[in-house]
Design a protein around this nucleic acid. Structure first.
Lengths: 297, 297
DNA sequence: AGTCGCTGTAACGGAAAGTTACATCAGAGA
DNA sequence: TCTCTGATGTAACTTTCCGTTACAGCGACT
């Protein structure tokens, strides 16, 4: 039985593109970038010696040959799909995979980790690894799949999807004495700094205060620790809408100068290709929804 | 439409192996080496999570799951094959390809080229390029697909398929004067040498004559030229069963010492993988048949 | 007109498939 | 029983090809 079959990867690309009559949507379905499909299909047409699509500058349409070929291909793939489903009926939508997240420790501890259970329930096949070391994530093979970064970018070479806009502002325990009277008064108090004092300096700038000396205070490697210390009444930390939310709601912290804040955002960042990985796709979708729920609730 | 399809290359490997219940024969059909299939199938089984074959040390047999899967896959590929045949109905068995042959000039001129027309008629899609330079063939990409070599090997790293056994013996024009009386008499005559005198030395050794001096004579870069000169009555050349056959049959040449000959063979040689290329396969098959017909006729 | 959305092209990098060489094993046959 | 044959499995290397990014081009819709 001598068969003359086309390149089957190309055929699959064609079938998806034909079904959607769109390279972009087919690429989405197959989790690849569209030029991959563009070339596969061009080579398939070359091999067959006839055009399968009419190209319009916005979208594709099938030729008669293409329609016939798609029908056969779809049927064939349906057969394979069905037979495959019989042999591995219980395969989850996102299969056995690892998902390595590179997250700042504070965000990991205060927002992400408490909610990871929900994600894992949704996608039991995915093993989540939270890398909360402070080293910049390495997104190469063997490194992180996805990062969550605070700031406003840009992150060169990486695609960023905004997870949440946040305000950044001072927080302290309600019983802190003395309570700072105005932003300038903070300069006289114990400030709880992170690894750098840049966030605080940015906030002072927003408050209209020019600093001509380094800031004093205690430094923490983890913004979350700084806030714990603030809750304990040991000083003023820089919190944000997300990290401080529970403490503010429970009145363990207050926001002494609600009118002054700087604006940043949390972002999901990774090389563009990573966002096409099923596990990353699933996580991104879940995280955006979970964050929306969190902000709304 | 979200499908869960296996690796289609692996599926094709599996389907062929299942149809033949043999890796070896499937590899033959698909023009690949068997370990490629072995691994593809193993990975397919791993992905599916169930065995498709029972391995016996001599041959394979399908499991129940394998049988069901093969049925679906065969049907699917039949569909694709049929649809493909409709779009390119006239594709020759061996498509538009080049076939570069590295051949010794004498064999090319006296045997191969006169018969190439028959091959090209059989496989019109194949463009044959005869490289009759005397440089050793380079079988890397861009070099020769297949070589025809005289000798007895081995050719390290190359696979050899014997095209014909030949005898190697002196030939001269029937009217040559004086005709050599015995092998030793040749030493007094004009010998027509090839690039080296090694073949003649080998023949003298077979005749029981030890040479303690270099051979004298005219050297040709092409054994075929030496034989042309022999036909013209200008000396004795070393011929062989194939190269000299027509001249012997037409009595343009005679074989003065029919009892003494050395034995060599013409071989098709190439890296093993080349023999799986459709054009090489087709040529090999044709050449063996053509040679058998030549030797018989 | 300008922007947006989609497809095409090119060059590069890396994963996946194939290759060779060798090991292994069982059965056939002397 | 021992070798020989014919099959598959394993391992390391190489090459192909597939996908990626970055960018261009072209209509259609504001």
């Amino acid at each position: 039985m001598m068969r003359r079959l086309p390149n089957l990867t190309a055929l699959r690309a064609f079938e998806a593109a034909a079904r959607h009559e769109s390279l972009t949507r087919a690429a989405e379905e197959l989790n690849v970038a569209h030029p991959a499909l563009s070339r596969q299909i061009r080579e398939l047409e070359g091999w067959l010696g006839c055009a399968l699509f009419n190209r319009h500058n916005r979208g594709l349409s099938l030729t008669d040959a293409g329609r016939a070929y798609r029908d056969a291909a779809s049927q064939a793939f349906d057969l394979i799909d069905a037979a495959t489903a019989l042999l591995r009926p219980d395969a989850p939508a996102v299969g056995e995979q690892r998902l390595t997240l590179s997250v700042e420790p504070s965000f990991a501890q205060r927002w992400l980790v408490p909610r990871l259970g929900a994600f894992r329930a949704l996608h039991p096949g995915v093993t989540v690894i939270v890398d909360a070391t402070r080293e910049a994530a390495n997104f190469r093979r063997g490194g992180a799949d996805l990062g969550i970064r605070y700031g406003s970018g840009p992150w060169p070479g990486l695609e960023a999807r905004k997870l949440a806009d946040v305000e950044n502002f001072p927080v302290c325990a309600p019983g802190l004495t003395p309570l700072p009277g105005d932003p300038a008064g903070l300069l006289e108090m114990d400030l709880l700094l992170e690894e750098t004092d840049l966030p605080w300096r940015a906030w002072f700038a927003a408050a209209g205060i020019t600093l001509n000396r380094p800031l004093h205070g205690t430094r923490f490697f983890d913004a979350s620790h700084a806030m714990d210390v603030a809750v304990a009444g040991q000083g003023v930390a820089l919190g944000d809408t997300i990290l401080s939310r529970d403490d503010l709601a429970a009145s363990r912290l207050i926001r002494p100068f609600p009118q002054v804040a700087i604006y940043q955002s949390y972002n999901l960042v990774a090389p563009p290709a990573h966002f096409r990985r099923p596990a990353v796709k699933a996580f991104t979708e879940w995280a955006l929804a979970a964050m929306a729920a969190f902000l709304a609730g």
